[in-house]
Design a protein around this nucleic acid. Structure first.
Lengths: 129, 129
DNA sequence: CCCAGTGTATTAATACATTAATACACATCT
DNA sequence: AGATGTGTATTAATGTATTAATACACTGGG
């Protein structure tokens, strides 16, 4: 698991871990059921306090991305059943709005924005594991 | 200018102002050149400290959304020339990635995500001023 | 020139976030 | 049962964010 932590870029370390793991899972480089590095191991690899990794894993567990088993290890969770609840769609809408607001501010048209989404999606699934 | 502030929802007041003004500008309910409420006036309307509004306006000015003129007032800035710099496209890509990661986690397919973006865009430009 | 209205700057109180140190508890294997 | 490797909980130090109180400075109209 190759994570890149930048201690000086303002973004909290635990969030950098969260985001990168989310990306790895979304792009299938980490698959459901697979074990991820133990807290201490990842902490050592990143030269970071174990609690910081634990914090990240906690967030990821709450987000349904990871599953921790006490005394055993931490694993990538199964993908959830598609699209339950309007609560969840609201989050997606917020993300879409943020994208559209930014695009509008940059003078980027809708179709160009859609193309960007498609391009990023392709890139996300592109590279090998 | 109709803003809704929720003091108890965890999101900082100044950010709620920033986001809502961004939305109003992106959706053309506020047009370039138009004067927005003075800091104190908006602060009074929202029952908030003037510094909090000033903080929001400062962020919006830095984002190129508003333009302040000392002693005179605050105005909606002109739309920037379309798409300069790769720095700016990087922000858009990050937003697109966030959307795609969230969608993936919810089991929402690419085409459905694209449709959502189109739908939100339509809704954004829908209502009257 | 003054006045009223505008944005600006400084400082501080308070709360929250972030990271770390340390000790604890559970699971598995022998 | 013990050893080892796993996640957990508690506490604290430190920094950062958020909001507010207050005084300052610029602009335009009488």
């Amino acid at each position: 698991m190759q994570l890149q932590i930048d201690s000086k870029k303002g973004i909290p370390i635990y969030l950098q871990i969260v985001n990168q793991v989310k990306y790895l899972v979304a792009s299938r480089r980490l698959e459901p059921g697979q074990e991820v590095l133990p807290i201490r191991a990842l902490a050592e690899q990143l030269v970071v306090n174990p609690n910081t990794v634990a914090r990240a894993y906690l967030e990821l567990e709450r987000a349904g991305i990871l599953m921790k088993r006490h005394g055993t290890g931490t694993y990538v969770a199964d993908a959830p059943p598609p699209v339950r609840g309007s609560q969840r769609l609201k989050i997606l809408s917020d993300r879409a709005d943020a994208l559209l607001i930014e695009a509008r501010q940059l003078g980027v048209e809708l179709e160009e924005t859609v193309n960007l989404v498609r391009a990023r999606h392709a890139k996300m699934l592109a590279v090998a594991k």
